[in-house]
Design a binder for these strands. Structure first.
Lengths: 328, 328
DNA sequence: CTGAAAGCGCTAACAA
DNA sequence: TTGTTAGCGCTTTCAG
């Protein structure tokens, strides 16, 4: 690997001059520039980013924290963050936190030592205390921990209301909800949205809300029980799509026909919803856009040194597929 | 951020001594060590990895190249690589290449400038020429491009044979195959395995192999056509699980009952297979293990400076679920 | 317009 | 056992 000195020597200039031409800084005579450029070409020189980072204290690197990339909600998000990082010439580090505060802070430390320039995080567990220690831009996604952090999310509560309204509009008269874990604020907002819509219905009954931990297995289990205990339920709003497909599975196992016999709607709009049979109706979030927006925001903040505190809310949209159908 | 000099000053020693205590190198008096440790504590000092990297020419960072993390085969792989990177105190960079050779080499360059220490790649398009330029350990996964690179894979051909045998054992008498893209060598091995088993059957017919590009949509399409054109087909071996669920979808749309009327088997063992209805029978690869093994190998090679050339083959395993069932 | 020189934070000879 | 020193490869004042 050639160094800047090799180039300088070959072009018979100082390293400062070479540096100027690579960075397009300061004045440099056209002819000199030409010589330098040729030398660079000839030696196949590329500047060493580590040295650059050391000098600048910046690494052109951003990190994304997700609970678990294996959860199908996150790959699309990760893809978006990586894409814009790339476009803006940043590199991208992915960290699976398992929602474990210890892992989170370990990562945070490790990355600060590497001069990471910014973070986008999906976390329910970062403390205000931790946040104070972070001196680079950070933006929260999907869930918000504290108030003192920029974020981009969707309106979970009103999205949920729309989901339930859709179920009603399709003729459901006994609507249950499988909810996510309490520690995730979006799960509690979704539950709240559900309650907004059903609380005052005379049929409502607290046994219509079951807990599904945002994953397939527990949701399937919960739906099994629910459907057995409350056979009159004719509509289920699952707190996310993964749980929605769990419900579908349970329904199939129990011989309940979807959508004729039971309507199911999820939340998120992950692509697995399209692939199951029947395809899952859902309140879709613009997942890619959210990730892209967040990445864009961090990088912009990094480059402007503008530690602004911004909160953005993206729209959710009803996507009707096969798991709900208007009854005639 | 405190530097090593701050610590040295506070402990009234030289930076060299501090360095010795952080790295556990060389001799240092117990008492001095104590003073240094306290100073570190007091200043909340952590060594700067960038400076370290610059000096050592190593970054303790490995990268994983995948075509697209959005494809559900890859998150688990990524998770494995990240986990072991982590365990061994390396950081992890994820790169989506879209199977684009330009993106691949762009990443390769960018990462070499950052002193990335090793690569694990899933690629069909890296040239021997490119490979020669890489001076750090690299290991290929899932697909192999050239011969001159270490790899960990499964035996796709014999796995396919097992898949087809399973279909036969379950009573299928007209077995079709939806295959992956030609540029992926595993796809061609799987096709070959299929042919090994059916080529000499008197019912065999070249219209029983359709192309599905390893994704849901095209596989669904291909299955639709296949099932319409060759209604006698009673078993389909999909080249991967994603295509398997595409086939399931097509079958449902066409009113073909799985498994009674049609058996379907996939390949890979990704988790979506469990979540669809009927759940997809598959030849499962030990995806996590493969990723973990690969990561382990690169890191070991990095640390031993042993540029060994190794090829490992992991076992595949039949996982029977609901999409195939023995006919009585 | 160009070069000399200092220094980003750390490590590793080499002396002492 | 400890300190001095010379860099790793780059950028950026500051002179010239």
């Amino acid at each position: 690997m050639a160094t800047i000195r090799d180039v300088a020597k070959l072009a018979s200039v100082s390293t400062a001059t070479v540096s100027r031409v690579i960075n397009g800084n300061g004045y440099v005579n056209a002819e000199t520039k030409q010589r330098v450029t040729e030398a660079i070409e000839q030696l196949d020189y590329v500047p060493n980013d580590v040295a650059r980072s050391l000098f600048k204290g910046r690494s052109k690197m951003i990190a994304l924290f997700v609970p678990d990339i294996t959860n199908p909600f996150f790959p699309e998000l990760a893809r978006a963050v990586e894409d814009v990082a790339n476009q803006r010439d940043y590199s991208f580090v992915l960290c699976n936190t398992d929602n474990d505060p210890n892992k989170e802070s370990a990562y945070l430390n490790a990355l600060q030592q590497k001069s990471a320039d910014g973070f986008v995080i999906v976390s329910s567990s970062i403390s205000e205390e931790q946040l104070k220690k972070i001196t680079v831009p950070m933006i929260a996604l999907d869930r918000i921990t504290g108030r003192s952090i920029s974020s981009v999310t969707v309106n979970n509560r009103s999205g949920s209301r729309q989901a339930v309204q859709h179920l009603k509009s399709v003729g459901c008269t006994r609507i249950a909800h499988i909810c996510g874990p309490e520690h995730a604020d979006n799960a509690v907002f979704r539950l709240r949205g559900y309650l907004d819509e059903v609380m005052h219905e005379d049929w409502f009954n607290s046994s219509y809300v079951a807990s599904g931990a945002y994953n397939f297995d527990t949701a399937r289990e919960a739906a099994m029980n629910l459907l057995r205990d409350c056979p009159e339920v004719d509509g289920i709003f699952a707190g996310n799509d993964l749980m929605g497909v769990g419900v579908l599975h349970a329904a199939a196992a129990l011989g309940r026909k979807v959508p004729d016999d039971l309507s199911v709607i999820g939340f998120d709009g992950i692509s697995i919803g399209k692939k199951v049979t029947p395809a899952l109706t859902t309140m879709a979030q613009p997942i890619y856009d959210i990730g892209a927006r967040a990445a864009d925001m961090v990088i912009t903040q990094i480059e402007n040194e503008a530690p602004a505190m911004i909160t953005e809310e993206c729209p959710v949209q009803l996507v009707e597929r096969q798991s709900t159908r208007r009854k005639d």
